[in-house]
């Protein structure tokens, strides 16, 4: 099986393309799903695609170990964000009886 040159040897661009596809799928989840947990999962997907870019550039580009550090901090922020967002989702469910983001249209009862 003979593959073309750009396909047989995965480089920086291949990782960037995978990350771009992940980003657009996460964006799709954020803007088209109406469950607040699904929106949260889409945000996790977007953060993962950004992380993949950082690590790919730290391997192939000029961003040496700093890229790994930024990826670690992004993971920390994502964990904190998920905890707080799920607490907010539980409160929203207690208030409104639903986690549909179209029904959450009031700040106060």
């Amino acid at each position: 099986m003979v593959l073309p040159e750009w396909l047989a040897e995965p480089g920086l661009n291949h990782f960037l393309v995978v990350s771009a596809v992940l980003f657009s799928l996460g964006l799709l989840a954020v803007i088209s799903r109406r469950n607040i947990i699904m929106v949260l999962m889409g945000i996790e997907l977007i953060l993962n695609s950004a992380n993949l870019n950082f690590v790919a550039f730290s391997r192939y580009g000029l961003l040496s170990l700093d890229g790994h550090m930024i990826a670690l901090f992004v993971i920390i922020i994502a964990a904190a964000e998920a905890a707080v967002a799920l607490a907010i989702a539980l409160n929203i469910y207690n208030q409104f009886g639903s986690v549909d983001v179209e029904q959450i249209s009031e700040l106060k009862e």
Binding site: F15, I36, I37, L40, M41, E44, N48, N51, V55, A56, S58, R59, H68, A71, L72, I75, I76, A78, A79, A82, A83, L86, A89, L90, Y93, V99
Partner: peptide, 29 residues
């Protein structure tokens, strides 16, 4: 990509932590 520590952290924090949190969120809401 030779980022071993980030890979392990990803497994621990995301798969072990955030995903379980999300499943709890699904079950509680």
């Amino acid at each position: 990509l030779y980022a071993g520590f980030v890979a392990v952290t990803q497994l621990l924090v995301y798969v072990g932590g955030i995903l379980v949190l999300i499943l709890f969120g699904v079950m509680l809401t």
